[in-house]
Design a protein around this nucleic acid. Structure first.
Lengths: 171, 171
DNA sequence: TAATAATGTGAGTAATCGCTTACAAAGATA
DNA sequence: TATCTTTGTAAGCGATTACTCACATTATTA
């Protein structure tokens, strides 16, 4: 991957995640990347190709973050590691997550829920812990995870909240 | 309010909520409303004025929905009525809620959290119910409410989930 | 009824949109 | 070194953008 190609991706990610896809013109992206506008189309075909490439990178980032949880078998550790996730995410990856959450509201980019498999992982954990309704507990837990992530991304995060949750789940 | 003015607002609300603000051109709005493009600017000055008017309506809609909860004093009923809220929302109001949640991701329209006062209402309820940490319980409860609303708007809603929550809170 | 105001239209504006293309520079291969 | 491929630029394309304005129609008031 060329240096300029990476600069384009970087600039586009930031603009898409902050201003939105439609509001980020290719000329703005090129200017922000310090590159001629034509180069975007040389490398990615069209504006949408740029987004597709970024979504691929986003998926990889997400997979990497979740993989230690998938490898975990101890139910309590599954929940504990999950609750530790949001705060362990690197600032430089924030735009990937912003893009992911933002695109949930764009019907055009039917981004299939990439977090789905984690739900069954939670369900297994709650089953092991003898919770009465593991399926629903998994949904609840997953919603909490998403809410925390969103609050962090939107700078509305209450830092004592996670310890409160750990206490609630006896972790 | 003229009929054509209302048609403009209706068309704009739907387009903004579905496709997004930037992606919804004034010409598309006018065509969808069955109105000349110039009329948008006669009534609302510019495209942003159209959004401002819609946000005002959104705020009114939200206030109306929450007002019975603000009037409620019985703590259990506060929580119960809140959990019943998401499913009681009229389909024709969905676009207002979509717009609201969508705009949370647009830093340009610093839409101050309109749900904030409800948090203290929840906190009062949990205090009355002798929960150990009412403040955090309120945050948790509020996150659940938002998650449910989002799931409904994104068609990912599990209908048994709300009864599960009612049971959890002994309501 | 006549004058005034509010509502509505459609053609037009400059600026910007995503994208193409001709061409130059740089790198790789023979 | 000579040829070919990849990487990069800049000008320019038709289409669309938000918006204006001169004008027509309808409603309100005097």
């Amino acid at each position: 991957m060329t240096e300029k190609k990476e600069q384009i991706l970087e600039a586009a990610l930031h603009l898409f995640a902050q201003e939105g896809y439609a509001a980020s013109s290719t000329s703005k992206i090129a200017k922000s990347a310090g590159v001629s506008e034509g180069l975007i189309f040389r490398h990615f075909g069209n504006k949408n190709g740029l987004l597709v490439e970024l979504l691929k990178q986003t998926q990889e980032t997400i997979n990497q973050v979740f993989s230690p949880i998938f490898r975990e078998t101890d139910p309590k550790k599954i929940l504990l590691k999950t609750l530790n996730l949001p705060l362990s995410i690197e600032k430089k990856h924030y735009d990937y997550w912003r893009l992911q959450y933002k695109l949930r509201w764009e019907p055009a980019y039917t981004n299939s829920e990439t977090f789905v498999p984690i739900l069954t992982k939670f369900e297994e954990a709650f089953t092991s812990l003898n919770y009465e309704n593991p399926k629903m507990e998994a949904i609840l837990f997953n919603q909490l995870l998403n809410s925390i992530a969103i609050d962090i991304l939107l700078n509305k995060f209450e830092k004592n909240y996670i310890s409160f949750l750990k206490n609630k789940y006896k972790l």
